[in-house]
Design a protein around this nucleic acid. Sequence first.
DNA 1: TTATCATATGACCATATGCTCATATATAAA
DNA 2: TTTATATATGAGCATATGGTCATATGATAA
Lengths: 126, 126
Amino acid sequence: MKKEESLLGQSEQCECRCIHQERVQAAREHALPLRENEQLADLFKAMGDPNRLRILRALDREEMCVCDLAMFVGVSESAVSHQLRQLRQQQLVTNRREGPILYYRLNDNHVSALIHLALEHLREEI
Amino acid sequence: MKKEESLLGQSEQCECRCIHQERVQAAREHALPLRENEQLADLFKAMGDPNRLRILRALDREEMCVCDLAMFVGVSESAVSHQLRQLRQQQLVTNRREGPILYYRLNDNHVSALIHLALEHLREEI
DNA sequence: TTATCATATGACCATATGCTCATATATAAA
DNA sequence: TTTATATATGAGCATATGGTCATATGATAA
């Protein structure tokens, strides 16, 4: 995780046999900033777990509280709470408090759109 | 990974305190089949690594061979090859052989669309 | 055939992940 | 205040993941 292209400046020659230097160069110019790339990966990673994905799908319909989600997913409330934290950190869900109960919902419609697009990909490919 | 809702049939009472049974029930009816949910998670997971994401972004422009990608990402060709295998398994990339060289490219435009949508989400949220 | 190049694959290891359990916090009721 | 409810959080552990190294494969050249 720490071996970045720090030492591979744009004009350096590589010791490895690299076939298309121009393409590598072009790819570098087109690449996302390190930090943004990392954030993007974190976003996909947050969606890349079966239980978190179930949670997102459930919240795509209506808001639910933690114990509902725990029962739906079939794991402990603590486990769901840990998962929800990751989803919150990636701005995938938000909540609203009603007394002692927190109602979770999707943060915006990008989430829904991402899932639907991915499902399309999945269903086309086979 | 093996504790599924196998024991939580639709009509059973839960021992845990669950507030909105109807919502849980509705979420169950709306839920994806286990296998499809798993596949969907695998797809997002494949996109949820910084180096694999860089590879996908690079291939979004033009096809590249393994050693190009290795140089671009800044890891060994072996590492890239391992990553490409995951991307192939998720149908995110394909390749074409030209002599001894394999040229990789994105499999379809869903991939590109997913990345752009996720980037939108990222950029809006802050 | 042998040698070489481009890539793939398996074993291994350090780190990351997801869960459980115990505990902490926050709100509401008694 | 004390008690209960709903959720959050930290530690610890088993498994998953991503990299390296060594080796295998597949294509081309000699």
